[in-house]
């Protein structure tokens, strides 16, 4: 087997909460990702999936364990793994073109060359008409496209995506799913994709890693074996979706209890089903 491009071994990470107590975001998490793989991290909010992505990005440091990318230990952010954030994070003072070219400028690429690369990437995300606009003039979906183009312009080995489409409306999201899949198939990048949307994870990824919460651990992995490009109507995908839903049920229960108190339960709800209260009433 090929050597994995991202290797996460026995990673722990905790944060200090406002009260001063520790909050364990990740506990003994190990994960390896092969080159060219599309992996999704899926889990309820607070399960540490974004933290894990930040560790790979080098934006945060693990308390214990190691994160290596391409055989090298991650010590800080690097242009070989670019992050696409939930909020596009485009710079409002630059045009789309300059935004996309920004990373290349940092690499020291000449003006003419970086503009031609940037234009190419902008074309790939279908934004050619808007290259000279400022970010605030674009719609949410277009901003996110621009952010993807900006990441791709750096030609990174790895693309890290932190809930990139969660702020978009459903239609826009579906279109972006298709476009992202296309880009992934053309470029063969390794993509680590964080989401809380099961459908999104299943339609896009080769492998879905389900995380559990408090403490954040890897609960189960699902290989999604369906043809590419993915067909929304593929029964295989529905099947996977249901399986993942089941494995997430316990986690949701935990989150709900945390937020609403112990008396609230998703699973025991059936006991107070009105139909059960009226047994025999028709006699």
């Amino acid at each position: 087997m090929q050597h994995p491009i991202i290797e996460i071994q026995h990673v722990n990470k905790s944060f200090i909460q406002r009260g001063g107590s520790d909050f364990t975001a990740l506990q003994n998490v190990s994960l390896s990702i092969q080159k060219g793989e599309f992996v999704s991290l899926l889990g309820p909010s607070g399960c540490g999936k974004s933290t894990l992505l930040n560790l790979v990005a080098g934006l945060e440091k693990a308390d214990a364990g190691s994160v290596t990318v391409g055989g090298k230990t991650v010590t800080g952010p690097g242009p070989d793994r670019v992050v696409v954030f939930q909020e596009h994070a485009l710079f409002p003072w630059l045009t789309v073109l300059d935004n996309v070219a920004f990373g290349l400028k940092q690499k020291g690429v000449g003006k003419a060359e970086r503009e031609s690369i940037a234009r190419e990437q902008i074309k790939a995300v279908h934004l050619t008409k808007f290259a000279d606009r400022y970010p605030h003039e674009l719609s949410g979906g277009m901003k996110q496209r621009a952010a993807i183009a900006r990441a791709l312009a750096m030609d990174p080995e790895i693309l890290l995506m932190d809930e990139p489409f969660s702020a978009l409306d459903e239609q826009t999201r579906l279109i972006l799913h298709r476009d992202l899949e296309e880009i992934w198939m053309q470029t063969g990048k390794t993509i680590l994709f964080v989401t809380h949307n099961i459908r999104e994870a299943v339609t896009l990824s080769d492998r879905v890693v389900v995380m559990s919460t408090r403490p954040g651990e890897i609960k189960k992995e699902f290989m999604i074996q369906a043809t590419r490009p993915r067909d929304k109507a593929d029964s295989n995908l529905y099947h996977m979706e249901n399986q993942i839903m089941q494995s997430l049920a316990d986690e949701l229960e935990k989150v709900v209890k945390e937020e609403m108190g112990d008396e609230y339960s998703l699973q025991e709800k059936r006991l107070s089903d009105p139909a059960a209260d009226h047994v025999g009433s028709g006699i």
């Binding site: 080098g58 670019v82 992050v83 994070a89 710079f91 630059l94 690499k107 750096m154």
Partner: peptide, 27 residues
Amino acid sequence: IYLKAAQTMGTGMGWRMFSQVMIPAAF
């Protein structure tokens, strides 16, 4: 998030971050 994004694109935390991101962002 601007600083994070800039860091992942290789500005580092020094002069380039200051002149190309912080100054325009704080403008």
